[in-house]
């Protein structure tokens, strides 16, 4: 079983989504987790719209799509809680997605993290160690470690293993509530093996970052890694199934 934990389905192009479904079937991927499709600095209206699209995808193909609720922590707490209630408690979404609007060290994330602990849902948070091209408030793996330390009862999926690199793996090593997805950058060799040794395969989840990436290339890094079959199966789907509490 293969579950892709990191996908961005284009909200307004059903034709492409059909192609994604087709490609995923050919690649043996059974479930795809949509993290939404939003602009930087999303307004409340844009957040609602992104989450509506994700919920629609899940309603349309509940056998394939899983979805996360995108939030901008700069919005008012009342709006954020309303959106969590609407999309997760009363809706069909199974986690929270945070991007670069707010750094992971910010206290604005605390109420969201507490809600996730209460609802027992994970947060998928963007992270990258950027030498060039860093955007305002973008989080590094060290920032994610800070967040994980403040909220040990909330499960965090840190995005982009390759972008975290060895330094990033070490940052999160002693925080058992942090998982990492395999997406990010080109399929540089050695990092999956390093992460399996440092974190254990049970903390690593396959993710493609489609539609900007390709299932083939992204699966290639997991199939190409020099790890045992059991660890590979954990990474490809077993871990995600457990984390998302899928049947």
């Amino acid at each position: 079983m293969i579950i892709d934990i990191h996908a961005h389905l284009p909200a307004k192009d059903r034709g492409i989504v059909d192609k994604i479904l087709d490609e995923s079937r050919r690649a043996g991927i059974s479930r795809i987790c949509n993290l939404g499709d939003w602009p930087y600095g999303a307004t409340q209206k844009q957040v609602v719209s992104a989450n509506n699209h994700t919920m629609r995808f899940v309603r349309w193909r509940p056998d394939v799509f899983v979805g996360f609720c995108f939030l901008n922590p700069n919005h008012a707490k009342s709006f954020i809680f309303r959106e969590i209630t609407r999309c997760v408690e009363n809706g069909n979404l199974k986690g929270i997605k945070l991007e670069v609007e707010t750094n992971a060290r910010s206290k604005r994330l605390d109420p969201i993290m507490e809600a996730c602990a209460r609802l027992n849902i994970p947060v998928l948070h963007h992270a990258w160690y950027k030498t060039v091209g860093k955007v305002l408030n973008e989080s590094t793996p060290a920032d994610i470690a800070d967040l994980a330390g403040r909220h040990p009862n909330t499960k965090i999926i840190m995005a982009h293993l390759t972008a975290a690199g060895i330094r990033g793996v070490l940052d999160i090593q002693s925080y058992p509530n942090v998982y990492v997805d395999t997406s990010g950058s080109q399929p540089f060799s050695g990092i999956i093996e390093y992460a399996v040794a440092a974190l254990g395969a049970q903390r690593i989840l396959y993710g493609s970052d489609i539609i900007g990436r390709d299932f083939s290339c992204q699966l290639g890094r997991v199939y190409g890694a020099n790890i045992n079959r059991h660890d590979r199966d954990l990474i490809l789907g077993i871990n995600a199934k457990k984390l998302l509490r899928l049947p």
Binding site: Q186, P187, S189, S216, C217, G220, R221, Y223, G224
Partner: peptide, 11 residues
């Protein structure tokens, strides 16, 4: 060997 060989092959 900078990249996993399988990624290009699978592409």
């Amino acid at each position: 060997p900078f990249l996993y060989t399988e990624s290009a092959v699978m592409k």
